[in-house]
Amino acid sequence: MTLFEAIILTIITASTPLLIAALGELVVERAGVLNLGVEGMMIIGAAAGIAAAITTGSSTLGVLVAVLAGMALSLVFAALVLGLAANQVAAGLALAILGLGLSGVIGAPFVGVQRAGIGKIEIPWLSDIPFLGPLLFRQDPFVYASVALVIGVWWFLTKSRAGLVLRAVGENHAAAHALGYPVRRIRLLAILFGGGCAGLAGAYMSLVYTPFWTSGMTGGRGWIALAIVVFASWLPFRAMVGAYLFGALTILQLHAQSAGVPLPSQFLAALPYLITILVLVLIMRARRGGVAGPASLGVPFVPDR
């Protein structure tokens, strides 16, 4: 394997958790809900996932528990913003803080326990294609799942009737309610989907990316996923581009460090965050007066009778 191939492979693994989490949040925001707690749901997925995987010895169960943990936490958020019409920004922050704390409590007994990561799945024949084969068809199951998710979310939002209703709820919840659509039930399902995706992304962090538990191991990826959704203008395929762009930056930064670029390592480590800011600015500049996201995004909904 050449160095170039190795770099591409690591970029794919670095981008996958960002992509999965961003896709979940994209659907939530399309339904008109801003859930800032992605970081919290992601890290609770990471902690619950590795805890379950170590206790039961099964990676599959670990992934399942991670998804359920993310969904459980998002349910708390849903109760607050849908049931009690609470401020979504504050509720999302609460979720992030709670998730970070809970993950520490759950993960504490598993600090330092090593386990083998989830292996790669080779697709017969296709993985033998020179160069492209190993890159595209010799990946772990999460990578395939993330690509399937992109296509699935795209199809759901643009081609299916349910997706159309979900977008209607996000654009104008009062009108959707007047038409008889169950606004809060639709939003609840979207929030649960977002929680499940964040949990899955967390499972990727603790079961594949770095197959052990360290406190705070998501390192702001949940927040970057939120930025990717804005960058993507709420479109699934652009979210994929965004996630791979950020993943590439993180990896190239690491390679620059090991190649001995004459800059302090902290400056290079700060690059992904600085570039996130830069990208947010550029995208907003390019979009002046254009789409600004779903119209009902972040507005609490209280049905009138």
């Binding site: 607050l80 609470a86 401020n87 509720a91 609460a94 803080i97 704390g101 409590v105 504490a108 406190s215």
Partner: peptide
Amino acid sequence: LPLDATRVLQGLLLFFVLACDS
């Protein structure tokens, strides 16, 4: 008790505050 238990309490507190604000 794990130190993170404090953060759990603080996060829960914020949740209850927001819920009561409704």
